[in-house]
Amino acid sequence: MSAISSSAAGSGERGLVRRLFSRPTSAAGLAVLAIILIAAVLAPWITPYAPGKLSIAHRLQAPGIAHLFGTDDFGRDVLSRMIFAGRLSLTVGFSVVVLSSLIGVLLGLLAGYFRKLDRPLSRLIDAMMAFPDILLAIALVAALGASAANVVIALGIVYAPRLARVVRASTLVIRELPYVEAAKALGVPTPVILVRHVLRNVASPLLVQGTFIFANAILAEAGLSFLGVGVSPDVPTWGTMISLGRQYLDQAPWIMFFPGGAIVLTVLSLQLVGDGMRDLLDPRLAKDI
């Protein structure tokens, strides 16, 4: 039995960002994310070259003073393209996480909480998960038409079942807990029970899944672009840069290395922030420094 601690966990979810900064790991994650985001937003003003500027004379140059991250097979500056690519990659990543969370949470809560809906919804989720991710995404994009928005919609639908499963599993457990019954006994309306009691307690696994999906979405967008069903190859994304740089892996590894590094850094920092948020959102783990 835990004694009453004097911790001021009572400060709730206010000052979450400040408390994230007080943890070294999540502070590092936040800082890196902030740099990547600011760079993407300010891309037109901070890049040394225009992202699409061709210069065959300078093709496949190794990183150096003129081109910090080298140039690609058309002589385009890798650093400039990478910064511009962040715009679309991050937008796709975040949008897919938001969309798939909306669909997944709704499906998962309904399937987990209402017994009658469980069977049909679970079968639907299983059916969707039976397809390989990329194949389903290709089919959806092909049906919807190739555009950044449709890539987001397709990937949002593809990843929703994973979240739905996580939410459903947790909901099945939480539904039977006495605090949910206590709320029922008070006559609390079901939607309020779902949000206040169930969803709040599903937040941790949801955040962890969300960071995975962000990473997967960036890579899947690359795959779709590579296969020609994603965004136009003229628009740089981290994914298209990697897939185009792949054929020069022997001569010019930097074409792939830097956008790949950008993905790794983004995902890593997101996961650090996600871990920190998970701990801080749980009053049992929250500690003020």
């Binding site: 006559g187 709040r200 959102l281 009053p283």
Partner: peptide, 24 residues
């Protein structure tokens, strides 16, 4: 029944799972 709920209350056996850990 919802109108009657507040006239009837229940106290549970398990003091740990009967309170939502995320709420003050």
């Amino acid at each position: 029944m919802r109108q009657y709920r507040r006239r009837l209350q229940i106290i549970f056996q398990d003091p740990y799972s009967s309170l939502n850990p995320r709420l003050t």
